[in-house]
Computed example of a mutant assay.
Amino acid sequence: MAALPGATSDHWAGPYLGAYFAAGAGRARQNLASTAESAQRNFNGAVLTTNFVASTTTRGNAVGDTTGSMVDLFAGYNWRAGNIVAGGQIEGTLFSDVAFKTAGEQTSNSRQVQNNVVTTGVNQVTMQASEQLRSNVGVIGRAGYLVTPKLMLYGLGGLALGHFTFPDPGNADGPNGKWVAGYTAGAGGEFKLTQRWSLRGEYRYMHFDIDRNETRTSSSTQIQGATTILRSNADTTSRKTSADIHIAKIGAVYGFCYCD
């Protein structure tokens, strides 16, 4: 585009579009807490008796690696004052296979009362989980300094909104998707190849806290002669995952600058 009347020719200011290819790794930590309760009560005439009560509490911790790659599209706008360039950018993921797998141990403590007989137990098993970042939308701000007329070094920070899928075995329809708000920060450099085309190299840090809470309840009634049998079950599970991702990005940018 030609320079606007009265405007100074500037190949750093104005709107731009571009694409990133990114790959990286990080760390994930997950805490699990669950409770399961079941009971059977018999109602015979005016008498209600409890025949069976059971409860189990489970706690677990797991850690693992986060790895993968992604392709992002982005658009933004720059303003320039001297050697300072600042602006805003929106970005969205076109493809992502970023995933984390955690492993650890979980311990279950159970207590059962049947016909006034109390039984307790402790069970320890391996805990494993996996989750995938399928999409990401970001809104960030950038501020940079022109080291030379063609090279800008900059820092950035902003909001990241990630869509995570979790392979819930209780969901027959497939992965359980959830959008989670996080944040991103980083730094990079941009080099002008021409007035409108430039290349970027960038480091990006992303952090997400993913909370998943599930509650399932069921009850049934059975009549046997003069006795009514009441059964109930309740299960609650909470998974809290903290994921850190360190990403290296390389991108190509086309600027709709106010150029001669």
Rank of each mutant, 00 (worst) to 15 (best):
S96K: 02
D97G: 02
D97K: 05
V98C: 07
F100A: 03
K101N: 07
A103W: 02
Q106H: 13
N109T: 14
N109P: 03
V113L: 00
V118A: 03
T119S: 14
T119V: 15
T119Y: 03
G121S: 11
V122M: 12
N123I: 11
N123R: 08
Q124A: 15
V125T: 10
V125N: 09
T126A: 15
T126E: 10
M127T: 06
Q128P: 00
Q128W: 10
S130P: 05
E131C: 14
Q132R: 14
R134T: 09
S135P: 00
S135F: 12
S135N: 13
N136G: 11
V137G: 10
G138H: 01
V139I: 10
V139R: 01
G141N: 01
G144W: 01
G144N: 03
G144V: 05
G144D: 04
L146M: 08
V147F: 14
V147C: 12
V147S: 05
V147R: 05
P149F: 01
K150Y: 09
L151E: 03
M152P: 04
L153T: 07
L153I: 12
L153G: 08
Y154E: 03
L156A: 09
G157H: 00
A160F: 05
L161A: 12
L161E: 05
L161I: 13
H163T: 11
P167H: 01
D168T: 07
D168P: 00
A172Y: 09
A172N: 07
A172L: 14
G174I: 04
G174H: 07
P175K: 08
N176K: 10
G177L: 04
G177A: 11
G177Y: 03
W179A: 09
W179K: 04
V180M: 08
A181H: 08
Y183F: 12
Y183P: 00
Y183D: 03
T184A: 15
A185G: 10
G186K: 07
